[in-house]
Design a protein around this nucleic acid. Structure first.
Lengths: 158, 158
DNA sequence: CAAATAGTTTAACCATGGCTAACAATTATT
DNA sequence: AATAATTGTTAGCCATGGTTAAACTATTTG
């Protein structure tokens, strides 16, 4: 369907029963996933804080806790981490705010999230399902794939 | 804990700058992702063991370690867990084998993995990227989306 | 057959991200 | 203003999934 630059597909378009990828490539796949996992949660928190600020004007720990379905203690601990990472500023009993860097991360995450979500809907996935899938998928979609998803969505939007 | 967010929420499908999903739905999204993470690694190991058995006839800890880019100690520990979970059988210093249940999990994972991978390629994603993305995405794609991906791939396969 | 090498396991450690329970501070109610 | 309720923090616990280093087993080879 896509007449975007067709990548030069390797000679072997492998089917399921095919050879394993070479060790280094295989290893790199798993490494990429592990690295994604490290930043995933951080990004989720930052993205949510950004969303809360945008829509509610403030981001309180209690809201984060209920939206993430996690205890307040967990959120509190996480906020300390985000603070150490220079992503948020927080004064006790006050709303959180994002630093410059945190804001950038939130924007990037939200953009990525939206692209995936809209793509899934354009594909024909039901809204509720699309939201759940997007939440999980967003951290594992490369920029290359993201670009393709975006073009696809634009094209298939009536 | 109680939810003091009362603003009326507009109907679902709107664009990025829009209202947050209702708390329960939002919470469920994150919960689903957390649950996926719990089984993800297990499935990756089992899937890899299945692949090694299929292609190499045996699955040694050393192979798993190098393909996962992880230390042998980590693999050893993980194998113990898989054992406790009734997914593999292992005798010390011998090749691993999958139990009935392990085999089923491996098959399911591989099928899911293949659907995502083929879908990405059909979309126009380059092979190397598709492999990396598929590895990360496979555990976060619902059955509904999976079915849609499969149909898409069949249709767009030239 | 003994020794070297390769493979496997164990022990001890670390960071992460959950949890509960107890406490502290703020805000709301009466 | 006093008290109640909500919100936030801290401390201590647990499981997971990594790590290195050392010990043990199996296999290969001189």
């Amino acid at each position: 369907m896509s007449d975007h630059e067709q990548p030069p597909l390797p000679p072997t378009s492998r089917l399921s029963g095919d050879a394993l990828p070479p060790v280094e490539q295989h290893a790199q796949q798993y490494e990429t996933v592990r690295n994604a996992h490290e930043t995933e949660l951080i990004e989720d928190y930052v993205e949510l804080i950004g969303d809360l600020l945008r829509h509610r004007g403030e981001a309180r720990a209690a809201d984060i806790a209920s939206r993430m379905a996690v205890s307040q203690a967990t959120v509190s601990k996480m906020i300390r981490r985000l603070n150490e990472l220079g992503l948020v500023t927080s004064r006790p009993y006050r709303s959180l705010f994002l630093t410059e860097e945190g804001h950038k991360m939130a924007e990037t995450s939200r953009a990525r999230h939206d692209i995936v979500l809209h793509f899934l809907r354009a594909l024909g996935v039901r809204d509720t399902t699309a939201r759940i899938d997007a939440e999980g998928m967003e951290h594992h979609v490369s920029d290359e794939t993201l670009a393709i998803m975006q073009r696809f969505t634009e094209k298939h939007q009536s």
